[in-house]
Design a protein around this nucleic acid. Structure first.
Length: 122
DNA sequence: ACAGTGACAACAT
DNA sequence: TATGTTGCCACTG
């Protein structure tokens, strides 16, 4: 259990702001957090949610709304399947193709403004 | 302290 | 277009 507001926690805060029915990318979240090159770390943070499942503090993180910059689902590990993510997204209205592709022109989240992020991380 | 790891991204073939 | 390579960053043992 991490008491400090580390990078992972910051990632979760942002992800919780993604509206239902919309998506964003790992890289965009990294940008919002002020570490434009930390896309990989963002993915790592979301993967870590798998180890927290069952913990009420993290059950509300809509991790399925985060995909890669190409608009494609990136999951490859065995704990959580890409298909599972696709189903969760479809359930909230996001159109996911057979090839796990999503049209960013339609479903991409606008993101937050600098002031909003600062207030959030406060 | 240090090397390994990965749900990325950009660039090069 | 489709792979392959390289840079990155935070976390872990």
């Amino acid at each position: 259990m991490t008491t400090t507001k580390n990078f992972y926690e910051q990632v979760y805060l942002i992800v919780r702001r993604i509206p239902r029915g919309q998506v964003t990318s790992y890289g965009r979240i990294a940008h919002l957090l002020g570490s434009p090159r930390a896309a990989r770390a963002v993915g790592y943070a979301l993967r870590a949610l798998g180890d927290k499942r069952g913990n009420p503090a993290y059950d509300d993180v809509p991790w399925q709304r985060v995909i890669n910059s190409q608009g494609r689902i990136s999951i490859t590990n065995r704990q959580t399947t890409a298909h599972k993510q696709a189903e969760l997204l479809r359930a909230e209205g996001v159109v996911v193709s057979e090839g796990l592709q999503i049209d960013l022109a339609i479903f991409l989240w606008e993101g937050l403004h600098w002031a909003e992020v600062e207030k959030l991380l406060g």
